[in-house]
Design a protein around this nucleic acid. Sequence first.
DNA 1: CCTACCGATCGGTAGG
DNA 2: CCTACCGATCGGTAGG
Lengths: 229, 229
Amino acid sequence: MSERGHTSGRRPGRPRNTEPSPEYVARMNQIVETAAKVFQAKGYDAGSLDDVAVALDLRKASLYYYVRSKAELLYRVFDRAITTALDNVQCCQEIDDPRERLAALIRLQAVSVALSPGYFTVFFDQRPRLSPDYEADIRSKERRYLRVFAEAVDAAVAAGVLPAVDPRFGAQAILGMTSWVYKWFDGERDDPEAFARTCAELLLGGGGVAAPAGVASSGSPARKAPASA
Amino acid sequence: MSERGHTSGRRPGRPRNTEPSPEYVARMNQIVETAAKVFQAKGYDAGSLDDVAVALDLRKASLYYYVRSKAELLYRVFDRAITTALDNVQCCQEIDDPRERLAALIRLQAVSVALSPGYFTVFFDQRPRLSPDYEADIRSKERRYLRVFAEAVDAAVAAGVLPAVDPRFGAQAILGMTSWVYKWFDGERDDPEAFARTCAELLLGGGGVAAPAGVASSGSPARKAPASA
DNA sequence: CCTACCGATCGGTAGG
DNA sequence: CCTACCGATCGGTAGG
């Protein structure tokens, strides 16, 4: 997954290992972002490189200066999605209290997906289109992501905040509940924070999510989970 | 969405409104089932009519005797998926106790999706490929499906079995948790019933699902939700 | 249900 | 980053 550098330098000798120019990186970012939009709207197979190129006011052949293949372009969309998500989620690792940590993860996932469903739609729904060449790379990052949630569930179970469920099952259950919003969420009508609160209440009882000050929790009762095993 | 009948009758006059022959219906069922497999494995766009035809030992052109277009074939897969799911779920409507009804719906959804992810994968992930011609039909059935869950959540909230959440948000949260299994479930390794129990425990506390006799619930504590508003 | 075929699209390459 | 182009695939139709 090495990138070809675009050298504008004049140094003599063999200009090897030159890092990519800022223009190159910026253009690459535009391309990946545009590809994400195209693949979201039309799917990977029906979304053509021409669609991507035209949206950038380029010719299709020019894209091959930046990516080796359409498959690599899809991989770059995937990589950006999971890398961004991993970065976000790792901030929550610092939270010591099991209940607060899990609540933060739940809120983060629900709100992230609700606010920018684009990358997530591609990541989730085009997953079987990803070339086997890139599967291992994405899968390992995905596993790290799952592990963050599984560890949080484990800690929550140990602290009696959740019933004694299998950490992997629990993590997938929570990820399903919160990620599913990309299928049905209507940004015009629905409030992401309100849905995040719903998830937290269902899983942790009332008061689990630190809602922004001034937002009334309108009558949802505090529900305490008993300490278990 | 009328079907062309395959008349082998010899009656004089205009043979109108003949119902499709049993062979025609059987063949149509095979075609839809095969299409579901192809669209699941390759996606709608990359899965060709030739793939479907070859799997049935037919020529591609012959499929046009049964469907008007590839788009209609996708619609038929969708229709079968949602119709079957609706039939299943409507049995739960008879259950009066709110807690038991919700538990039954949770289990049904989780187990159904885990046991036969094929149709669900197409239904969920190829949704944006469905032609606008068929959108309204599928969407209305989908809404009925959602309503079943929303009403169950509403009743559960009223009975104090769930915290006071918005019924639509709650229904989508539960559908997400349970449907998501088609993304990660490993039939070789995971037990569908065990995951269904996990979901029920997370949402309803212990003992919410009528597990098959003899299955120990290994230490999961009964968690009671307080009566609310 | 088949053979034969068309028009269009698309990923990718040559060569600059 | 462009023009020009190729080979392959695919949905759909004609006509039987």
